[in-house]
C-alpha cells in the first residue's frame, strides 16, 4: 500500500520541556493509525508538526511525498485537520462554515456547493445547514468540526481527540464515520486517550508517553509484546479439577485451573483454542452453562509499558 504519511525523528522542546522526542511513524492509504496516550503525552504536539502548524526542532514530515513545513503551503491540500478544540465559527451557519473553509482549499462554484451538500449529508446536518452553529448541540458542532476536515477530500485526515466532550450517540456516529472513511482509502491519524476507541478503530497503534513512542504495532502485536494472554472463563458443573487437568493438556493452553464456578484457561489465542477446548470439555462430561473470552487490552499494555493507567 502507498505510504501517505511519513514522520521521521520528530523532536520538539518548549524551553526545557521535551514535548516530543524522536517520534517516527508511517501511515498507509486506507490505514487508521492511533496515537494512544494520556493528556500531555505529546500527541497534539506530534500532530501539530504533522499538520505543519508547528516546526519541529528536528525531523521531517512528508505527506504524499511532499515535505510539510510551517513556512510553506506545499502539501497542505492533502491534509484534513480536525483539531481537538471546536474550530468552527459560531456566528456562521453550518453551510457557511463549510463553504468558507472549502474556498480556502481552492474549491469553487458548483463543485463546492455539491461537496458541501455531500458532507452535510454525511454528518447528518442537512436539515440544520442554515442555522447558526451557536444554536447547534455539542454533538452537532463536533460533527461539523469533523466534516470541515473532510470537505476537500484529503488523503490524510488528522483527528485530534474527535470524541472529547460528546454524548454517546454522537460519539458512536463519529466513530462509525471514521470507519467508513478508512474504507474509502483515506489515511487516518487518530489521537485519543480512550483505549476502547483505539482498539475499535485503529489498524495500528503507537503508545506515546512523555513525548516518546513506547511501542507500536497492531493491537495483537502490542499485547504479545508484553506477554499478556487471552483468558477464557468457562462456567461449568462436574469434576472441575479433572476438567481443568484435561484442558491443561490441550495444545495452545498456557494454564488451566478450577475456580468456584468453573474453569479459567489462559492462552495466547482464544479464538483458535475455543473449538478444541469445547470438544475437550464435552468429552470429559462437563456441563457448560457459559463461556466468556477476555482479551488483554491496550489499557493493560499501557500500564505495563508506562507503569501508570491511561487516564492518569
Amino acid at each position: 500500500m502507498t505510504t501517505v504519511l511519513a514522520a521521521e525523528g520528530l523532536n520538539k522542546k518548549f524551553d526545557d520541556l521535551v514535548a516530543v522526542d524522536g517520534v517516527s511513524f508511517e501511515i498507509a492509504e486506507g490505514e487508521t493509525f492511533g496515537l494512544l496516550g494520556p493528556n500531555g503525552a505529546g500527541k497534539t504536539t506530534s500532530i501539530s508538526m504533522v499538520a505543519g502548524l508547528l516546526e519541529p526542532d528536528s525531523g521531517t514530515v512528508h505527506v504524499a511525498g511532499t515535505p510539510i513545513r510551517t513556512n510553506s503551503t506545499d502539501g497542505r491540500a492533502e491534509i484534513g485537520l480536525v483539531p481537538q478544540e471546536l474550530a468552527i465559527y459560531p456566528d456562521l451557519t453550518g453551510a457557511e462554515n463549510l463553504r468558507f473553509f472549502g474556498r480556502l482549499y481552492g474549491m469553487r462554484g458548483e463543485e463546492l456547493e455539491k461537496r458541501v451538500a455531500e458532507v452535510l449529508e454525511v454528518i447528518g446536518l442537512t436539515d440544520r445547514k442554515d442555522d447558526l452553529t451557536r444554536e447547534y448541540s455539542g454533538g452537532m458542532q463536533r460533527r461539523l468540526n469533523n466534516g470541515i476536515g473532510l470537505l476537500h477530500r484529503p488523503r490524510l485526515l488528522i483527528l485530534d481527540e474527535p470524541t472529547v466532550g460528546v454524548d454517546p450517540q454522537s460519539r458512536n456516529a463519529i466513530l462509525e464515520s471514521v470507519e467508513e472513511l478508512s474504507g474509502q482509502g483515506i489515511a487516518i491519524l487518530f489521537t485519543t486517550h480512550y483505549m476502547e476507541e483505539a482498539e475499535r478503530l485503529c489498524d495500528r497503534v503507537a503508545i506515546i508517553d512523555q513525548g516518546v513512542i513506547q511501542a507500536e504495532g497492531t493491537r495483537r502485536e502490542l499485547v504479545s509484546l508484553v506477554g499478556k494472554k487471552d483468558r477464557i472463563s468457562v462456567t461449568a458443573g462436574g469434576d472441575l479439577t479433572g476438567i481443568a487437568r484435561a484442558a491443561a493438556g490441550l495444545s495452545g493452553v498456557t494454564e488451566a485451573s478450577a475456580s468456584d464456578h468453573g474453569i479459567e484457561v489462559l492462552t495466547s489465542d482464544a479464538a483458535t483454542l475455543l473449538p478444541s477446548l469445547m470438544s475437550c470439555f464435552s468429552s470429559v462430561g462437563a456441563s457448560i452453562t457459559g463461556v466468556q473470552i477476555f482479551e488483554p487490552n491496550l489499557e493493560a499494555v499501557f500500564l505495563h509499558l508506562t507503569g501508570k493507567a491511561l487516564r492518569d
Partner: peptide, 15 residues
C-alpha cells in the same frame, strides 16, 4: 483562542 486559527494555518494559505 477559539481554535479556528489552527484550521486556517493548516489550510494551503500563507501566514
Amino acid at each position: 483562542q477559539g481554535g479556528t486559527m489552527a484550521r486556517l494555518l493548516a489550510a494551503p494559505i500563507s501566514h
